[in-house]
Amino acid sequence: MLTRTLPRFGSRRSLRVFERNLTVYRSQWLMLISGFFEPLFYLLSIGLGLNHLVGPLRVGGHVVSYATFVAPGMLATSAMNGAMIDTIFNTFFRLKISHSYDAILSTPLDVTDVALGEVWWALARAGAYGASFIVCMVLLGDAGSAWVALCWPAAILTSLTFSAIGLAACTYVRSWQDFDLVTLVQLPIFLFSATFFPISLYPHWLGAIVAISPLYQSAALLRGLSLGVFQWVMLGRIAYLVVLALVGLRVAANRFRRILVP
């Protein structure tokens, strides 16, 4: 019934796409496990290493260690990378190389189910990796406060936003060569989004540009939550990420339809 009343949003059949991804990744368990080690690598390399070189910082009236300052930024980065790699590379593979989606569309599932199924998958993956990252933060003493638990839904939102952007972007990828362009965009976002240092260090004009970056918005949101510093602007950051996610999903669904069922 749901399919007939709400055809644009997919149906419970979308869960089969989630099941498909789980089946495929189970045979690649090493890749799945590596996602859980990633937070340790991030936190240990940048957090521990730089913590001794960089002194404590003042953030919103709190004085915190550099490791505590940088950990939410790393969480945001990890959410972005995970989401982008999974959607851009793997979805491109399913869409244009293995044609898995073409096969799926000859079954009762339709395009909206496929798109929604990929979103379920992105959310579940983000939930698992986000939780393991936050647990590592707590264990290493990098959590600013007990409010760090709120970083979990915020990290999932971050993943959703980047998954939506990635899903939309991958439909424009023509060949493996185009992935260089993806790196070309992703790297500056990673380096300039004020994930390693406060945005106040930038000249004013650059700070305004950086504010456009969803990674900056996410890192700032996560940082506030981790430290338990709540500001109204954080609602704006959430809204920004939600809007980007919705726009990305809309574009992705249209492009999927155009490519798969012309």
Partner: peptide, 29 residues
């Protein structure tokens, strides 16, 4: 679509899965 079977012109098998899993996963749809 639930009552028909389609053999497309180009193979669209799941390259990363085993032969058996290709069948079983497809049936889940």
């Amino acid at each position: 679509r639930g009552r028909i079977g389609v053999v497309p012109q180009e193979d669209t098998l799941e390259l990363e899965l085993s032969v058996r899993l290709n069948l079983e996963m497809f049936g889940r749809y």
